[in-house]
Amino acid sequence: MLKRVHFEPSVLPYLLVAPQIIVTVLFFLWPASQALYQSLIVEDAFGLSSEFVWFQNFEELFKDPLYWGSFQRTFVFSFLVAFLSMSLALILAVMADRVIKGSGIYRTLLIWPYAVAPAAAGALWFFIFDPTVGFIPYALQFFGYEWNHKLNGNEAMALVIFTASWKQIAYNFLFFLAGLQSIPKSLIEAAAIDGAGPTRRFWTIVFPLLSPTTFFLLVINVVYAFFETFGIIDAVTGGGPANATNILVFKVYNDGFVGLDLGGSAAQSVILMAIVIALTVVQFRFVEKKVAY
């Protein structure tokens, strides 16, 4: 943590940490404490008077079926995004690990979606699925299916799940590939000599040895789906139709910034904070040391 040899005490270290600490306090700690405080008060419509109400905002939130709906949707959304994007990435990584020629090129061709902004990814997929001109709806109509994610909530949810998973494949692919390459070849060779075929080897050796990577990616993907998909939701569906894609991060923004419900939004913020803290603890306690790249 600290070097055995270090510099003489002086005012310098304070000056060195000052910029980081000032930004942290001003834009992170103070606003977070404000959110905590605001979650416990009720203000009148003009912001003139406020009353301390303890946990009333939270009680109202938990009584609100819309909030529970949003909670459920967020879990379904995160689970499906993590599952879809991790399984596709794993298949691709296993294949990339097998091929000897060209795996570098495949890697280049698979990692670029990481750099696409969530909102831009939303635009790409929005266009493909556009009910009037999009390719998929056009193809689907030959099968007698009418796709319209602007009216059908399930289709809207499917669209944002596709978009969010597509963007995350790159990240998962990189880490799975690294995980696969760190598995000792001798283990696999031994199994092959004993007569285990590729499928058997995968499920009995490779997949279990990959579990630290898988667990790490699961946490990362859930965090991603919870917090970094705001741009996708806002650009593609705006939380609609009829709240079908109104996940927690979108709801906290919409209720607070658009709907101006201060106390309710602050209470939602606090719950989200609790979720991030829990996920970060999981990440640092159980993940950090087990993943080797």
Binding site: V25, Q38, F227, V252, M273
Partner: peptide, 18 residues
Amino acid sequence: MIFVTLMLPVEVRILPTF
């Protein structure tokens, strides 16, 4: 203090930061 910023993405403190 620096560590804690990990747990406070902008999405959870939108209004007060604004």
